[in-house]
Amino acid sequence: MENSAQQLFSTAAITSFRLNGQFLALAEKLAEPAGLTAAWWQVLGAVLHEPLPVAGIARTMGVTRQSVQRIADLLVTRGLAEYRPNPAHRRAKLVAVTAEGQAAIDRLGPRHSEFAARLAKQVGAERLTEIVQALAELSAAVDGIEGAGESD
């Protein structure tokens, strides 16, 4: 029989996988009218406040550098992002959002805001804050364990 820590871990993982699927489906629904996909929105969102190299975006998103590179190239081709020189690394260019990319993000803002308000009302703003903090703590704990190379 599984111990309670193992059961909790399994339930947390399964719930996280389901929530991830729900978030991705919702992101597709919110992003589509703005001419974006969920993946494009994620990459643009990662560089809204400051340009980042592809590897930095991948670390932030928890995905592979190759998948971010493919999306960044598409965003650049479509004029939603641009590559800029990186003073810290000659070959690893920075990805930055363009005015057109910012406009696309702005277009999805009202629907995003409306859903966020509905979610906060459903769960309660204070409880939603606690949930977000707990998810961030759980993510940091997994990073800490993975970073330490522990398997038990």
Rank of each mutant, 00 (worst) to 15 (best):
R91I: 07
T98E: 14
Q42S: 11
A58D: 07
P53G: 04
T15P: 00
P110S: 10
T15Q: 13
E32C: 00
S16P: 01
A99L: 11
G79M: 06
A55I: 11
A116I: 09
L19H: 10
A96Y: 08
G147P: 14
E100F: 00
S10R: 05
L44F: 02
L94I: 11
V132S: 15
Q6H: 06
A39V: 09
V76Q: 06
T98G: 13
D152L: 15
K29A: 08
R107H: 12
S151D: 14
A96G: 12
P85W: 02
V43C: 03
R107S: 11
V76A: 09
M1K: 04
A38R: 01
T77M: 14
G124M: 10
L74A: 07
A5H: 03
A103Q: 13
K121L: 15
L8N: 04
A12Y: 06
H49M: 10
L36T: 00
R118P: 03
L24K: 04
K93C: 03
E32P: 00
A39Y: 03
S67M: 08
H49I: 07
V68L: 06
N3M: 03
R59C: 06
L8Y: 04
A55G: 05
T77R: 15
R65T: 14
R118D: 13
A55M: 06
G56F: 03
V97T: 12
V63Q: 05
E130K: 14
T37R: 00
Q133Y: 12
A72L: 06
R18G: 02
R90M: 11
D73K: 09
P110L: 11
I71S: 01
R107A: 15
G21T: 02
H112E: 14
N20K: 03
K93L: 13
A13Q: 07
A46L: 02
R90H: 15
A104D: 01
T98Q: 12
